[in-house]
Design a protein around this nucleic acid. Structure first.
Length: 384
DNA sequence: TCTGGGGTCCTAGGACCC
DNA sequence: TCTGGGGTCCTAGGACCC
């Protein structure tokens, strides 16, 4: 999708068409740009830029909050459409999918005809434009899709992979980020041709097995295997950045409780259990640390998650003001329900919690822990 | 400029076992 | 007294992506 969140906003409110549009954090807060329209990009605004900088660069923009549930709904209807073209569809993210169209020629025609049909169907149904890349492997197709945006269509014929890659800059390689780019610079590797001149063994020893082999394949247009594994869920987490750094232990504990409840609900809804808890802390100077612990049995209630989080906090937090706190669960597996066979204290709590979740789902009002009702105490702005 | 939130995968080192 | 080789699982941090 092209500038997906911004494009959905325009589709929902045509009066916004043609204006510089910035979807993301509310100006004046700690946060970043999520997506901006092509008009806003002309001012030098881009995704992940601090919202304060976006305001400086484009004060005339329309600033809109992220309406994630709306984008999720539009995304689902687009994915449904894509699924009618081939069952071999991989949803890569909320605004991106990869379609294996081999064997569909009799049904949908040649690659360019099929691609135009897909674009047309999505435009008809949602009013949105998309960019498509067509190639003999998913990796090249992905890069080709980003090669000409918006409303693009780039076809790389089989056999042309290597010459297509030659036209790109190192930064266009999907999977090469700022750190790798920096290291390549230091090694005097400035172009794809420079990179191709390095032997596989040299890349392996410089970057390690995974990254080395990835670089070797990617610059030659060989699919490094990005989408091969089934994308099953391995962890879930939640985090929050405070508007002002926080050092009050009670506040932090209340935030952890809230997060534990949220994670517990999400686990329940997903029908999974977890046996590892991860606590993430970010201090005022942006130093970020984490601590985790695995337990023999799975968590069965928010209280169990909360108490694990508390222990981890006690071990890791140096008492300096926190800018961010995060809580996560990993070691996710299918919920077998076994934990509930034993009538331990924790399981009774879990049963109560499930009843509360179900009540909430049936619209019986919102139930929360008494101690979460009230104000959050924060530090005064911290200067050093 | 002052830096979100949700993820995935990889690495290096350590504990522990046979 | 100084020491192997293979394996599993865990931990903390890092790179990257949308």
């Amino acid at each position: 999708m092209d500038a997906f969140f911004a494009a959905v906003e325009v589709a929902d409110n045509p009066a916004l068409a043609g204006l510089p549009l910035i979807v993301g954090a509310i100006p004046g807060t700690r946060g970043v740009v999520s997506t901006c329209s092509y008009e806003a990009r002309r001012y030098g605004v881009h995704s992940a830029m601090p919202i304060s900088e976006a305001v400086r660069r484009c004060p005339v923009a329309q600033f809109l909050p992220v309406r994630m549930s709306r984008y999720t709904a539009v995304s689902a209807s687009i994915m449904d459409i894509l699924g009618t073209f081939t069952p071999e569809m991989i949803r890569v993210s909320i605004d991106e999918a990869s379609l294996d169209m081999s064997g569909t020629q009799r049904l949908w025609g040649s690659p360019d005809v099929a691609a135009r049909a897909i674009k047309e169907r999505i435009r008809e149904s949602t009013g949105l434009t998309i960019s498509i890349g067509v190639a003999a492997n998913r990796y090249i197709a992905k890069i080709a899709a980003g090669y000409r945006k918006p409303d693009g269509l780039v076809i790389v014929a089989a056999g042309d992979e290597a010459s297509f890659m030659e036209k790109l800059a190192i930064k266009d390689l999907w999977g090469v980020g700022s750190k790798t780019r920096e290291r390549l610079q230091e090694l005097a590797i400035h172009s794809i041709s420079d990179l191709k001149a390095i032997s596989e063994n040299m890349l392996l020893s410089l970057f390690g097995t995974a990254a080395g082999s990835f670089l070797f394949k990617a610059c030659r247009g060989i699919d490094p295997g990005m989408y091969s594994q089934s994308p099953k869920s391995r962890s879930m987490s939640t985090e929050t950045t405070f508007e002002l750094d926080v050092c009050d232990a009670e506040t932090i504990d209340a935030v952890l409780l809230e997060m534990a409840m949220q994670l517990s609900l999400r686990m329940y809804e997903a029908g999974v259990s977890a046996h590892t808890a991860v606590l993430k802390l970010r201090y005022a100077d942006f130093e970020t640390v984490s601590i985790r612990e695995s337990f023999s049995g799975p968590f069965t209630s928010s209280d169990a998650i909360h108490s694990a989080a508390r222990d981890l906090l006690a071990k890791k937090w140096n008492r300096k003001p926190l800018r961010l706190i995060g809580l996560g669960l990993s070691g996710l597996g299918e919920q077998d329900g076994q934990g509930l066979l034993f009538d331990s204290g924790d399981c009774r709590i879990a049963k109560v919690e499930r009843a509360v979740f179900e009540a909430g789902r049936r619209g019986l009002g919102s139930i929360t822990k008494a101690r979460l009702i009230g104000n959050v105490k924060r530090c005064a702005p911290h200067h050093e």
